[in-house]
Simulated scan of single mutants.
Amino acid sequence: MRGNVFTYTTMAWLMAVTLMMTGATSMASSLRLDDPSAFAGRWQATLTGHNDTPETRSLQDKPSNTCLVELAPNQTLGEGTECLAAWLGEAPISWFPEPDGVAIIGEKGSKIAFFSRQRGSVYTKKLDGGLVITLERAPQ
């Protein structure tokens, strides 16, 4: 009986390790990292309250609520940096794509914001105070 216990325990550990390894491999292959050129260009950033409806968001055209942000092809930020800095509390200097969104990097080289992909070309970042920054591809 003692020999069987060792065998069952060993088999359980081997199965667990195998599942973890195959799960990690399949997870990594399911997350696709977009090329930075897919994000380069002008984006409209909108600061809204958590409970704002799409109709109220479209009416918000105040300079303090909306700005155009340029994600440059060399992964730096162009115009609109001041606007994001005011909302994030730190000046952003660069960006990079992640499998499920876009990361914004601050002057010290650390990630200061992550914009999560919602649908299509819409990304959001929830701020501590309950406000939401929405990034959408600006009309050409």
Rank of each mutant, 00 (worst) to 15 (best):
N51F: 05
S110M: 05
G89R: 03
M27V: 11
L77K: 00
G23C: 10
A40H: 04
P97L: 06
G3E: 15
T48G: 04
S64H: 08
W95M: 05
G41I: 01
R2F: 11
N65K: 11
E136T: 09
K62I: 07
F115I: 05
L71S: 09
S116Y: 07
E82M: 11
Y123K: 03
P99I: 05
T9S: 13
I104W: 02
W87L: 12
R57C: 03
G89K: 04
M15R: 07
S26I: 15
T18I: 14
W13I: 14
T124A: 09
R117C: 06
K111P: 00
E55F: 07
L68M: 12
S121I: 04
I105K: 11
L59V: 00
Q118E: 00
Q60W: 00
W43M: 01
L88H: 04
K108D: 12
V17Q: 01
V5T: 07
L19R: 02
P54A: 13
Q140T: 12
L47R: 09
I105P: 02
V102D: 00
G101I: 06
L71Q: 07
Q118M: 09
R137E: 04
A91M: 09
F96H: 15
A16Q: 04
R2S: 11
T46N: 11
G101N: 05
S116T: 13
E55P: 00
V17D: 00
K111S: 08
A72R: 13
V5G: 08
M11A: 15
F39H: 08
E107M: 02
T76K: 07
W13M: 10
G23R: 10
N51V: 08
G101E: 02
A12R: 10
G23Y: 12
R119M: 14
E136Q: 13
A45W: 07
L33I: 07
P92A: 15
T10G: 13
A12W: 03
K111C: 08
S116M: 10
N74D: 12
A91G: 04
R117Y: 03
G3N: 12
P73L: 03
Q60V: 02
A38R: 09
E136R: 12
L84S: 05
Y8R: 09
L59Q: 09
L88V: 08
L127V: 12
E79L: 15
S110L: 09
R32F: 03
T9P: 06
P54N: 12
W95N: 03
T9C: 14
D128I: 13
F39T: 03
P139E: 06
T66A: 05
A138F: 14
M27H: 12
K62L: 12
L59F: 02
G120I: 02
T7R: 12
G130Q: 09
A91H: 08
L59H: 02
T46D: 05
V17I: 12
T76F: 03
S94K: 07
P73I: 00
G49T: 00
E55M: 10
V132Y: 00
